[in-house]
Design a protein around this nucleic acid. Sequence first.
DNA 1: AATATGAACGCAAACGCTTGCGCAACAGCG
DNA 2: CGCTGTTGCGCAAGCGTTTGCGTTCATATT
Lengths: 339, 339
Amino acid sequence: MTASINDVARAAGVSASTVSRALRGRAGVSDEVRDRIASVAAQLGYTASRSASSLASGRTFTIGVVVPYVGRWFFGTVLDAAEQVFSAAGYDVLLYNLGTPETRKRFFAKLPVRKRVDAVLSLLIPDEGESAALRSLGVPLASTVGGARPGFTVVGIDDRAGAESAVRHLVNLGHRRIGTISGSSGPLHWTTPIERRRAYLDVLAEAGIEHDPALEADGDYTLEGGERAMTELLAASRPPTAVFAQSDEMAMGALRALRRHRLKVPDDVSVVGFDDHELADVIGLTTVAQPVAGQGAEAARLLLRQLDEPDAEHPGHVQMPIHLVLRETTAPPRPRGPQ
Amino acid sequence: MTASINDVARAAGVSASTVSRALRGRAGVSDEVRDRIASVAAQLGYTASRSASSLASGRTFTIGVVVPYVGRWFFGTVLDAAEQVFSAAGYDVLLYNLGTPETRKRFFAKLPVRKRVDAVLSLLIPDEGESAALRSLGVPLASTVGGARPGFTVVGIDDRAGAESAVRHLVNLGHRRIGTISGSSGPLHWTTPIERRRAYLDVLAEAGIEHDPALEADGDYTLEGGERAMTELLAASRPPTAVFAQSDEMAMGALRALRRHRLKVPDDVSVVGFDDHELADVIGLTTVAQPVAGQGAEAARLLLRQLDEPDAEHPGHVQMPIHLVLRETTAPPRPRGPQ
DNA sequence: AATATGAACGCAAACGCTTGCGCAACAGCG
DNA sequence: CGCTGTTGCGCAAGCGTTTGCGTTCATATT
């Protein structure tokens, strides 16, 4: 069918080993022979079979990337950036999309990446068992979400500081009834929602505002969840004048709910998000910006470095910068009548 | 390191061939032995090496998916849906993100998928040479974009009809100066922008409206491009009262531009998009809805069917339904003074 | 009872590479 | 001129599966 290494060897009048060495830039081949082999290979349209070469060498030149939802902006963007780094370095990307609990379970049970990848980049936070499963692969691991984890290189942001700046912004504007839409649900062992919520509580306490449980709702990190959560908050006996949504997509859901309730943003309710979604600017959403693509690229680079220098010292946790972006969904609370 | 088929064979007291047959459900193994092998394999945590098995069998159980930009909503969503179908069927997905001309060129020059995949799903429109390269792989091909192409199973929508319904909607509202933001740029041999533009021209003609070239601008299928294009249109001597943006992301860019110009939507300008982006609903964008995830899933299914029954008859082109979704960015034109 | 039939399993040859080792040939050295 | 190194290349043994074919043994057939 397609040309094999022996076809090339025969056509070039050398042995298969020389072809192998020549094409991969290994030493021990004269320039003349190397050129000849290269041209013959090109002419025959020869590409080494990845299966055969990885079987023989143990290297797969493939990176496994596991993602909760490729379709969501955050993950898509991280993946995009990471893929570019990997493919530029000659690695292929094997994608595992683990949206549902079943697919996730099946993935970690069968571990289809075993013997198939040189490293794994996880865009989801594995629980203890899942972490152990990944570690059992014996390859470098990285993650772009959550906090530091043994065996993983994780590049992330300071969730606490980011959330603090968001809530503090609302406090500084004069808000006292500040709600939050969190994303804590699901079986994810995710430090992110914990950190962000903690920051919310801390800033409130620091400002001397009493915490009202009726002002917290779960938005499941989705648009629809954000909408539901906002609706819940509005149903409180004393609804909030400002809301910190712990992701932009939930913030957008909140905006939708507010629109349905004929409430004006920011006049009636202020909203601040988290992520700086690509569309946050379009809708004028005030939010905490994090370098999403940057984290994907950085994680990919760190992984590659580990593959290149397995014995060197490698950072276990790097933090990327964040900053608050002021747009048009936050303003001082509407002056009230007799308070 | 990790267990091989011989370890399992030894532990189960059978030959490697029997293990192979047993684990893959092939005939010729008694139930008793099959069970024993299964339990031994589970105990040893054995997974067959994909490299070895595909080298021996010629099957890779891997699908190559090539995407222009994973980060963009449309492609991310298609990919998500397709991946689910593939992984449910036991196939892995090898992702190629071909955002830049260089990566794209390199991909088609080296064809890293050669001997690595059983089929290819392309979310970009290959030109003639690229199509030929893909066909040379000798595996089933599918695509979710553009029109019918020889050698490909393509699942798409009726772009012409969709665009017509969008423009006709604007006409019916009473608009006469209708602009369009197209996405024709780039070296993509893409029928989509051609079809959508054609529809735009046809409907104008059908309504007896003279075509004004100043009301066409290129938005490059991006948010920023849409914004630029809208700004251009507004600079026309007689700016449009309505705009048909040929994708939702460009429509969102247009909305941003309009906001910057302090123009009200839909009071001053109506906007209709195309795609029904997940956030279209949030911002109330009137648009032509197409089943994005549906197309990805359908294409994946068709590809799998071709792998299962290579000799059967397979459809070359399937069309999915579309419909106009009315929201809040379109309205009759503001009554003018002496016209 | 002899033979054909089929099921269950093992043998061994691929599959297409990589790589340690060996062997020339040649250069540099004293 | 012999000796040690170096360079360029081929040999052959893997890497871990799959699969065609052969063998054995129990069962069915005449």
